[in-house]
Simulated scan of single mutants.
Amino acid sequence: MTLLDIIVLAVAGFAAGTINAIAGGGTFISFAALVFTGLNTLEANATSAVALTPANLASVAAYRSEVRTHFREMIPFMVIGLFGGGIGALLLIWLGDGGFRPLVPWLLLVATLLFAFSTNIRRFTEPWSKGDRPGARIAAYVLMSVVAIYGGFFGAGIGIMMLAALSIIEGGDYHKANSVKILVAFLIQVVSAALLIAGGLVHWPHAVITMLASAAGGYLGVGVARRVPEKAIRATVVTVGAVLTVIFFLK
């Protein structure tokens, strides 16, 4: 790696960890930086997944009060995250770079649209949280299962879809829902990372630099999440996602 590569990965890792702690979408940044440093799309995706795992753990630590308070309620989502993340990672390994590369611009497009219309998505799911609807929890579990598999496969955009799933049963408690999102995302990445490492897809020099920077960003990002308007962060993520989508469609 060149000095420029190291600087790019450090800055991207810190930004990705911070953004993931606030609204999700940090994968956009880390994935693009890893491709910039010369990794193919499959290796960049796998290395990004491994590198961002400690950042999510740091964010879980920062949300430890909410996690302790609501831990029992989180258990079903934790189980879904573990199984879904494993399925998604195995699917990624099975496809290989030849199968994954053509999907990248479409995955980026879907993730960008999720962020762009996140307010509408949340508004659509919020009515489910009003009253005691028997199907609400089942719907949340089904949506979370789909998101977990997608998260093990790619990861960009899972934060907003998790929050949408959680809004079905949690109503307006943002920090409770965000703590569940961060914990489940961490578990998805743990099992996904283990499988991707076993598959030999991770480039460790790139991963370590991104990992250290993203862990710092992940911990500090929770403090930012309590002060910075979520709309500002989401607008940034949408802009980055749109640019990357165009670039990968043209490449």
Rank of each mutant, 00 (worst) to 15 (best):
residue 210 T to M: 14
residue 180 V to K: 12
residue 209 I to V: 15
residue 240 V to G: 02
residue 16 A to T: 01
residue 53 T to W: 14
residue 4 L to S: 15
residue 35 V to M: 10
residue 46 A to H: 12
residue 87 I to K: 10
residue 121 I to C: 15
residue 193 A to F: 03
residue 31 F to T: 01
residue 171 G to T: 09
residue 17 G to K: 09
residue 15 A to D: 08
residue 77 F to E: 10
residue 114 L to M: 15
residue 54 P to V: 06
residue 120 N to E: 15
residue 188 I to C: 13
residue 245 T to E: 08
residue 146 V to I: 11
residue 248 F to V: 03
residue 139 A to V: 00
residue 52 L to Q: 14
residue 1 M to V: 06
residue 65 S to T: 15
residue 54 P to N: 10
residue 239 T to H: 08
residue 31 F to C: 02
residue 213 A to Y: 11
residue 188 I to R: 10
residue 147 V to D: 10
residue 73 E to G: 15
residue 142 V to N: 01
residue 247 I to T: 13
residue 128 W to G: 01
residue 18 T to C: 11
residue 215 A to Q: 09
residue 130 K to P: 02
residue 211 M to C: 13
residue 141 Y to L: 11
residue 1 M to E: 14
residue 251 K to P: 04
residue 223 G to M: 01
residue 26 G to Y: 05
residue 137 R to Q: 08
residue 44 A to E: 04
residue 188 I to L: 15
residue 182 I to L: 07
residue 157 G to C: 04
residue 251 K to Y: 08
residue 69 T to M: 12
residue 233 I to A: 06
residue 111 A to L: 07
residue 232 A to F: 13
residue 34 L to M: 09
residue 67 V to M: 12
residue 51 A to S: 05
residue 17 G to C: 06
residue 230 E to L: 11
residue 227 R to N: 06
residue 85 G to K: 06
residue 32 A to F: 02
residue 174 Y to P: 02
residue 27 T to W: 10
residue 238 V to E: 04
residue 244 L to I: 07
residue 99 G to C: 02
residue 33 A to P: 07
residue 243 V to C: 01
residue 186 F to M: 07
residue 116 A to F: 15
residue 190 V to W: 04
residue 249 F to Y: 09
residue 230 E to N: 07
residue 48 S to P: 10
residue 157 G to T: 07
residue 225 A to I: 03
residue 42 L to Y: 05
residue 84 G to E: 13
residue 15 A to T: 14
residue 199 G to N: 03
residue 54 P to Q: 09
residue 178 N to H: 00
residue 233 I to S: 04
residue 57 L to G: 12
residue 6 I to Y: 07
residue 171 G to Y: 09
residue 52 L to C: 02
residue 52 L to R: 06
residue 93 I to R: 11
residue 198 A to V: 05
residue 159 G to I: 00
residue 199 G to S: 07
residue 104 V to C: 04
residue 10 A to M: 05
residue 214 S to Q: 07
residue 166 L to V: 01
residue 107 L to D: 03
residue 86 G to V: 11
residue 91 L to D: 08
residue 86 G to R: 07
residue 154 F to T: 08
residue 142 V to W: 02
residue 128 W to E: 09
residue 202 V to W: 01
residue 200 G to I: 13
residue 229 P to K: 11
residue 36 F to K: 05
residue 193 A to H: 00
residue 22 I to K: 04
residue 80 I to Y: 10
residue 224 V to D: 02
residue 161 M to P: 12
residue 138 I to E: 08
residue 142 V to P: 02
residue 18 T to N: 09
residue 77 F to G: 01
residue 177 A to G: 00
residue 81 G to Y: 07
residue 180 V to T: 05
residue 28 F to Q: 03
residue 38 G to C: 13
residue 126 E to N: 08
residue 93 I to P: 06
residue 167 S to P: 03
residue 24 G to M: 03
residue 120 N to W: 13
